[in-house]
Design a protein around this nucleic acid. Structure first.
Lengths: 167, 167
DNA sequence: CCGCTACTATTGAGTACGCAAGCAACTCTA
DNA sequence: TAGAGTTGCTTGCGTACTCAATAGTAGCGG
């Protein structure tokens, strides 16, 4: 009677917990695979991917940070690693000397190709075994709504294929 | 034609990305609030909550680790912190001297009460503004399916209220 | 009882972040 | 052209994890 502080819980809490669990489970598995087989973290991969899509295969670090949901310093350090491995290079900007572009190198593109094949396959496998295609669609839709209207995610640019709300 | 490595992407990848974004957004916001207002991390909170539900308000650390989706060492260190703050105490087990119970103290329960009120309110607010109740139900259902059948989550015990698949 | 394997918990080392502070370069105002 | 404010990036420091190695205990088959 007294220690059950939280017996009557809202459905919202249930949904939240379900999200936490689903996320933990899936990222653990997929990121372990990606790390083991390709030597890339999920964030590494996402960065390489966004760069491959960008004009001239280059992006400002700030924009990268927004799209990959990392802080500015997170991006700096993540790119440090990718630069050390030659997957990304830095380039300066003529019109604004504060900015340092991150440029995907040929090696980086090659690496991304290999990794993408394996990684996307695993994502498909993961979801494919659990969902029919219309469930998949509603899940995506619901999750998109959940991510909407974040202070930091407001006023989104046009969505692209990978990053759904490119912010 | 060549740099668009990944133009045709499966819906699965879209769903995965949506999950990553939704998770990042919601945990950032909620955990920031919880930390700022209550001085607890999301994991701290979840641990206190599970303890409050357990018989005698105590649990083995392994079991805690499973339920909170943390490694054994993660639990040790998390509990170190909670112990320092007097929210949790340790107790040994008579029948098996390997185990060290984590016990929720009265102070811990009190702290949990306050935190829960605020935190659950915020969770409700977050989801409530975005979803009708049937959408919420289908989201939860879909996420549960997504978390099912993890190698580590297999052979689940009976689910309880907070942790949906108590593993 | 002895040795074996399995399990619980802790510790050390390393990683991946975030926040706050700082510098440099840009923009705006006047 | 000086100053004020903003933006892009990096760095120092702290935190929250993980994995691998360790030690103590349990419980088995001989």
């Amino acid at each position: 009677m007294m220690s059950q502080v939280l017996s009557e819980q809202s459905t919202c809490v249930g949904a939240f917990v379900a999200l936490l669990r689903a996320h933990a489970g899936i990222t653990r598995q997929l990121s372990a695979q990606l790390t083991a087989e390709q030597g890339l973290t999920l964030s590494d991969f996402e960065v390489l991917l966004r760069l491959s899509r960008a004009d001239d295969r280059r992006m400002r670090r700030v924009d990268l940070a927004d799209q990959v949901l990392l802080s500015a310093s997170g991006v700096t350090r993540l790119l440090d690693g990718l630069e050390r491995h030659g997957l990304v290079a830095r380039a300066s900007c003529d019109s604004d000397r504060r900015v340092v572009y991150a440029v995907l190198t040929d090696a980086g593109l090659e690496r991304l190709r290999t990794a993408a094949e394996s990684h996307f396959g695993q994502v498909d496998a993961y979801f494919g075994t659990r969902f029919e295609s219309d469930d998949l669609a509603s899940l995506t839709n619901l999750l998109d709504r959940l991510a909407e209207g974040h202070p930091e995610t407001e006023d989104c640019g046009p969505p692209d294929e990978y990053g759904r709300a490119s912010r």
